[in-house]
Simulated assay, not measured.
Amino acid sequence: MTGYEGQRRYDVVVIGGGAAGLSGALTLARARRSVLVVDAGEPRNAPASHIHGYLGREGTPPAELLAVGRAEVTGYGGEIVHGTVTAVERAAEGGFHVELADGHAVGAARLLITTGLVDELPAVPGVAERWGREVLHCPYCHGWEVRDLPIGVLATGPMAVHQTLLWRQWSNDVTLFLHTAPEITDEEYEQLAARGVTVVDGEVTGLDVTEDRLSGVRLAAGPVIPVQALVVAPRFTARAGVVAGLGLKATPQEWNGHVIGAHIATDPAGATDVPGVWAAGNVASPTDQVIGAAAAAVRAAAAINANLTAEETGRAVAARRAPFSAGAEREVCEKVLGDRRHGLDLPTAARDVGSSR
């Protein structure tokens, strides 16, 4: 990774070096923009052993994907530094002032926020320790890997039945642990029964692990129900604190009418309510898989480049129209008079006469 060059100003500073941040930086670097990626090294999918659903990269370890991405970005002249952004503020000269924990600071004409999110897990002993292994949440990310195994679903909110019926696609042996979720309806009980899902009352107090593999779920009443995978519903909380100083705050993220977390709201191209700031990836769309986060950042990067191009064109037009500009006068003379502006096409005597006037 490259370092800083004093107080250098970049066209774009990308805050976050995961799949989204690197994809956006790659697009910008190929557009011949000066771009700096500030990577805190805390990717959301670090606990996972592989990524899935990413065409051409199916089954790639997350760290490997990021290593390849960093090489591609720097190969086009983009810069990457390991660090944490501590503050962002408007710069007096325009753009933004970006401060890092190590004391360095850089300028940016535009910002792309790809800081991701934090998965707030249910407070059940053992869940955090098995997260990304046998404790899962996304069937499209991990369903194939636990197909046909006994799967438990830990109900903690109103989406539990929906989640359970979805996971039923990957296994005939699915158990819904009602745990702390609201009471389900008669219609939902009927749906679960029709799909052969077992429903277990009572609060879950912990997990059983055998030879470093999940083997069961323990209930407060005492029994252990055998499962080899446990599905949970984290609360998705955007890592948005770094841009709070710009007045950009996370807002509730809803799914099927229920709040599932918080995100930075953007338009379809990733633009936020703060001029000059774009956001992409899980910080803006918590339910995106890796490939979706990367694609969103590519769209945002293209929008940023177009925005910069429009601004640069406006400045160029203004400079061209500026009255009494020495540069503009010189350009007109060059086009209209050519060498005659210096009298070089006149006979020597004429030049002498002209110079004596």
Rank of each mutant, 00 (worst) to 15 (best):
T251L: 13
I260W: 03
Q289K: 01
W255E: 08
K249L: 15
L308G: 03
G245K: 02
A295P: 02
A271E: 10
G292K: 00
I264Y: 07
L246F: 11
N282F: 00
A295W: 08
I304N: 04
T272V: 09
V274G: 05
N307G: 14
G281H: 04
A269E: 14
A302P: 00
V274R: 12
G270I: 10
D273W: 00
Q253G: 07
A280I: 04
A262H: 14
V298Q: 15
T287L: 15
A271I: 04
V290T: 14
V243K: 07
A294L: 01
G270R: 11
R299W: 07
I291C: 01
I304H: 08
P275L: 08
K249N: 12
G281T: 06
T266Q: 05
A293P: 08
P286N: 10
G261N: 09
V277Y: 05
N307E: 15
T266L: 05
I304D: 03
V290G: 03
A310Y: 04
T272G: 08
P286I: 10
I264L: 15
P275A: 07
T309N: 02
I260S: 02
N282S: 13
A244G: 13
D288N: 14
P268F: 12
A279H: 00
A244K: 07
H263F: 00
R299G: 01
A303D: 03
I304R: 05
A302G: 03
L308S: 01
T251M: 08
R299E: 10
Q289C: 00
A279D: 05
A271S: 11
N305I: 03
A265Q: 14
I260R: 08
H258Q: 10
V277F: 07
A293M: 03
A306I: 01
T287N: 01
L246H: 09
A280G: 05
I264T: 05
A302H: 11
P268S: 11
I260G: 03
G261M: 11
T272F: 09
G270V: 11
A300K: 09
A306Q: 11
V283E: 05
V274W: 06
N256Q: 13
H263I: 01
A296D: 14
A310D: 13
T287R: 05
G261F: 06
I291S: 12
